[in-house]
């Protein structure tokens, strides 16, 4: 009777459809939902800026790797920093929804030419506002903010390690 009661019970408890469970059953495609999105997202999704990779073993490159377990998205954002701490180049690779791709594309655009300390001030709300992300997609911009911070931290750690070795 176990499966029967479980099935009856599940029929009741999923009557209010849970977003996480529904998402697992059917992944909506960007194309089908496009008309609901602001043109800024669609633009960055269709023509993402700075897609690619930098050499993660380069001392001047900081790599930020973040993920959203709730939806299975993974985002890599890299920065190449000069001796003054200015970001010369930035690349990203995101496997996820259109909003996650657009958020990371915007993030790479915004960090270029700025100082590493300055980019830490970029908030997910700025990215979300720029892309007019719907509330359910705010976490995608959060992912981009986390990726920027992770990339800067990675670069700083490498730099400190290098300086410690030089001093020794």
């Amino acid at each position: 009777m176990l499966a029967l009661t479980t099935l009856r019970h599940t029929a009741r408890s999923v009557a209010i459809r849970s977003p996480a469970v529904s998402r697992a059953l059917s992944a909506p495609r960007m194309a089908e939902q496009r008309r609901n999105y602001h043109e800024n997202i669609v633009e960055h999704y269709e023509n993402p800026r700075n897609v690619g990779s930098l050499d993660k073993n380069d001392d001047n490159v900081g790599t930020g790797l973040v993920g959203a377990p709730a939806c299975g998205d993974v985002m890599k954002l890299q920065i190449k920093v000069d001796e003054n701490g200015n970001i010369q180049e930035s690349k990203f690779k995101t496997f996820g929804c259109g909003s996650a791709i657009a958020s990371s594309s915007v993030a790479t655009e915004w960090v270029k030419g700025k100082h590493v300390d300055e980019v830490l001030a970029i908030k997910n709300t700025d990215i979300a506002a720029h892309l007019k992300l719907p509330p359910v997609k705010l976490h995608c911009s959060m992912l981009a903010e986390d990726a920027i911070r992770a990339a800067v931290n990675d670069w700083k750690e490498k730099k400190e390690k290098k300086e410690a070795t030089a001093a020794a």
Binding site: L7, S18, A24
Partner: peptide, 23 residues
């Protein structure tokens, strides 16, 4: 309709796990 949806949720391991976590 509800029973069919419940079946779909329970038949797929990922949605079953997500559902159990929610419960």
């Amino acid at each position: 309709t509800q029973v069919t949806h419940a079946y779909d949720v329970l038949a797929n391991p990922l949605s079953r796990a997500l559902h159990l976590l929610e419960l």
